[in-house]
Amino acid sequence: MPRSPLALAALATVAVPGLDAFDVRRPQVAGTEFDTAVVIDSVRKRWVVRAPIHAGAGAALEAEVALLDGVIAEVDAGKLPFDVPRAAGFAHLPEGGRAVVYPEVPGHPLRLEALGPGPGLAASLGRAIAAIHELPTAIVENAGLPVYDAPAYRDRRQAEIDEAARTGKVPPRLLRRWEERLEDVSLWRFSPTLVHGDLTAEHVLTAGGAVTGILSWGDAKVADPADDLSWLLVAAPQESVDSIMEAYQLRRTELLDPHLTDRALLAGELALARWLLYGVRSGNDDVVDDAVQMLAELDEHTNDADQPAHSLG
C-alpha cells in the first residue's frame, strides 16, 4: 500500500532534525519503485523524500546514494555543469531499508519541444551528457554498480535479442536487422564510460535555457555512452539533434567514436524489446500488446527506410 504524503512528511522530519514541515505535495512525476513527496518547510524550502517500495528498490537506493557521493565531489570540483540530489538525512523504515531526504534540485523537467537548433538548451544538454561521460569510472566501481567492457556489453545486447526472439512476438525482419548490427564488430569498438542509464525528460531539470540538474542515478553503470543519447535521437525535435551532438562531441576528450549515433539509434530500437520482455516477465498483457504494436510500427518504418528509391528513367 503506498505511503501517504503525510507519512512521507513525517519521515522527512525524522531524517532531517529541525525540518518543520509546513506543506506536502506529490511530485509532478511519480515512479513505480519509490513513494515520493515534496515537503515544504516553514521557511518555504522544498525537500524531496523518497522511500523504497520493496527490498530491491531499497538496495538500488543505497547504491545510488553511494554513487552520488562520488558524483557530488565532481560537481563541487566544477567537473559537472549541473547539480544532483544531495542526501541531507535518512529515516529507517519499519520493514527495513531507509528513506532518503534531499533538498529539491532547482529547475523544471525538460520539455523536448523546447529544444531547438543553436547554442541554447540543446547545446547545454549535449554538454551535460558529455560531462557525465567524462566522469571517472571508479565512481561506479566504488558504488558496486555494473561495469562492462565493450565485448561484454555487446553480449548483453545479444542476450536481450535472443530472449525477445523466444517470445515469438518480434517481427522476423526486425530480428534480422538487429542481428546484422550485432554481428558488425566495427560497430562495437567503443570506450566504455560512466553512463547515467535512465535519462528521460523527467530526470533532466532545466531553467534559463540550461540544464540545472539530473536526477535518478540508480541505473548508472560503466557501459556504452550511446545509451544516454538514444532517447534524444528518437524523441527530440530533429532540428535540435545536430546541436546536441555537436556540443556533445566538442565536450568529450576521447577520440571520435564513428559509430556512436548508429549504436544510439539501435539502443532506441532495443528499448522496445526490453519493454516487451518486461511485459512478458510481469505477465502484463497491456504492456505486451503495446510493445507488439510499437515493434510492428518500427518494422514497417525501418523496412520503408531500407527500400531503394525507384528511378523514373
Results as ranks from 00 to 15, higher is better:
Gly58Glu: 10
Ala123Lys: 11
Gly96Asn: 13
Pro136Tyr: 03
Leu112Ser: 06
Pro151Ser: 00
Ala99Asp: 08
Arg111Thr: 13
Gly78Trp: 07
Leu68Ile: 02
Ala73Lys: 10
Glu33Thr: 12
Pro136Ile: 10
Pro109Asn: 09
Glu113Leu: 14
Ile53Phe: 04
Arg86Met: 05
Val100His: 00
Pro146Leu: 12
Ile139Asp: 02
Ala51Ile: 09
Phe90Gln: 13
Ser124Val: 05
Ala73Asp: 05
Val43Met: 07
Ala130Arg: 05
Pro52Asp: 11
His54Pro: 05
His133Cys: 02
Pro52Phe: 08
Gly70Ile: 04
Glu134Phe: 02
Ile72Thr: 15
Asp83Thr: 13
Ala91Pro: 11
Leu93Gly: 02
Ala88Thr: 14
Val39Met: 03
Leu112Thr: 04
Gly120Ala: 13
Leu145Ile: 01
Glu64His: 04
Lys45Gly: 09
Gly56Asp: 07
Tyr102Ser: 12
Gly118Asp: 11
Glu113Tyr: 06
Glu104His: 05
Leu121Ala: 07
Gly56Val: 08
Gly107Lys: 01
Asp41Lys: 05
Ile139Leu: 15
Ala143Tyr: 03
Ala63Gly: 10
Ala57Thr: 10
Leu145Gln: 00
Pro136Leu: 06
Leu80Thr: 04
Gly96Ala: 11
Asp69Arg: 15
Leu112Pro: 04
Asp149Gln: 11
Pro117Gln: 13
Val101Pro: 00
Ile139Pro: 10
Arg86Glu: 03
Gly107His: 01
Pro106Cys: 02
Gly89Tyr: 02
Asp41Pro: 09
Val100Gly: 01
Ala99Met: 06
Tyr148Glu: 04
Ile129Cys: 02
Val140Ala: 04
Asn142Leu: 10
Pro109Lys: 01
Ser42Trp: 08
Leu93Cys: 05
Glu64Met: 04
Leu110Thr: 07
Tyr148Val: 01
Val100Asn: 00
Pro85His: 01
Pro119Asp: 12
Val105Gly: 01
Ala63Phe: 03
Gly126Met: 02
Ile132Phe: 07
Ala51Val: 02
His54Gln: 15
Gly97Ala: 03
Arg86Gly: 03
Glu74Cys: 11
Pro151Thr: 00
Ala130Phe: 07
Leu67Arg: 01
Ala128Leu: 03
Lys79Asn: 11
Leu61Val: 04
Gly144Ile: 08
Asp35Thr: 12
Leu125Trp: 05
Leu121Ser: 03
Ala130Val: 09
Val71Arg: 02
Pro151Ile: 00
Gly58Lys: 07
Asp76Cys: 02
Val65Arg: 13
Ser42Ala: 15
Pro103Arg: 00
Gly144Leu: 07
Ala57Gly: 15
Gly56Tyr: 04
Ala123Ile: 14
Ala91Ile: 08
Ala60Leu: 10
Gly118Val: 13
Phe34Arg: 15
Gly70Ala: 05
Glu104Pro: 00
Ile40Cys: 09
Phe90Trp: 15
Leu110Asp: 05
Thr137Asp: 14
Ala130Cys: 11
Leu110Cys: 06
Gly56Arg: 07
Val147Ile: 15
Thr36Lys: 09
Pro52Tyr: 08
Ala73Met: 08
Gly58Arg: 09
Ala66Glu: 15
Val65Asn: 05
